[in-house]
Amino acid sequence: MSKKHDFLAYAGAVTFCRCKQTTDLDGVDVAVMGVPFDCGVSNRSGTRLGPRSIRETSMFVGTFHYPWDYEVTEKYNIIDYGDVGYSIGNDTTHFMIEDSYEHAKKILDSGAKLLTLGGDHTIPYGLIRAASEKYGKLALLHFDSHEDTFPGVSTGEIFHGSFAYDLQEEGCIDPGKSAQVYIRTNMNECGYNIIYANEALAMGPEALASRIKEIIGDTPVYLTFDIDSLDPSYAPGTGTPVVGGPSTQEVRSVLQQLKGLNIVAADLVEVAPIYDPTEATRLAAATIARDLLYLLVD
């Protein structure tokens, strides 16, 4: 089929940016994996439909590589690994964490990088544990409006607001080498470098990216991007929106200037299509997910 058919986003098999769907990891540079899970939400549900909506929209946004200077899916072997971690029953959260851990470990041990599409922000538990086993203690680069630092494991209440507390407590994450960016809520202090939204917006993309690089250095990075880090005017389709965040363009500019960080795995979470009537949220999510691909292979 000719290249011009790539513009016809309404046709063809739905995979992330039209990448081949397979679990064969031989020679793969990045595996894109979905975790359609939303049993950890504390407000509006619906993020279990996030991976599918991001894939559908990526069929369109994957047509163009602006502002990057090459097409990442042509230069690197990127696959759509499919979905993992979904089930029904009394133990859905623990099943999701264990199943996503096993698949993440398989992908990372193969030498590939991992990009995961969520799903709510409970999904990093298994992913970060697998990445930490391979790469050692990680820096967490966390774009969000919330710190997600409520204790979960010790209280028996694991949810989308607890991963950043629990995983630094386990020793998977070095909070002193980590940055939480565009934060506009207040939770527990765990030693993370918090760059609140007002400060981040006043700094501008170039200075903010420099500050993030200064904090992290050459530490292996797990990047987690909550779509609610964007202002709700740019991403209304999410479960816990908070006003006062950045625009899509501002965030993309920051990401483009983070080239050079040793990012070993990443995720994009909290897209809830049911609250996304104009499809702005999934459009932002699919575009930013592609940006994360460039950072992973850089």
Rank of each mutant, 00 (worst) to 15 (best):
Y192E: 05
E199Q: 14
V271K: 04
Y10V: 15
G176N: 10
P205H: 10
H146P: 03
Q249W: 14
H146M: 05
G217I: 01
P51S: 07
T248K: 11
D80V: 06
L208F: 06
R290L: 07
M203D: 14
G152S: 06
Q168I: 03
K259H: 15
S233F: 11
T47W: 11
V84C: 02
V254W: 13
P277C: 02
Q21C: 03
S53H: 15
D69Q: 10
I88A: 06
K259F: 15
V41G: 04
Q249S: 13
S42Q: 08
D174C: 12
D144H: 07
T73V: 15
N43M: 13
S42I: 10
D80W: 08
A289H: 01
A286L: 06
A286R: 03
D148K: 05
A209E: 11
G245I: 14
G260N: 11
K213F: 06
C172I: 00
E169N: 13
F16Q: 00
D144K: 08
G89S: 08
E157Y: 12
I216R: 08
T287K: 08
S110V: 02
G62P: 09
A289F: 01
L115N: 09
D267S: 09
Y10H: 14
G46F: 03
H160K: 08
Y294S: 04
T248M: 10
A197S: 13
V84Q: 01
I194H: 08
V72W: 12
D26T: 13
Y135K: 06
Y135T: 06
A139Y: 00
A31F: 06
P67S: 05
Q256W: 15
T63W: 13
D80Y: 09
D228F: 10
R252M: 15
I212H: 04
L138C: 11
G260L: 13
C19V: 05
G204Y: 00
E214D: 14
D69E: 14
A112M: 05
N188S: 14
S58D: 05
D26W: 00
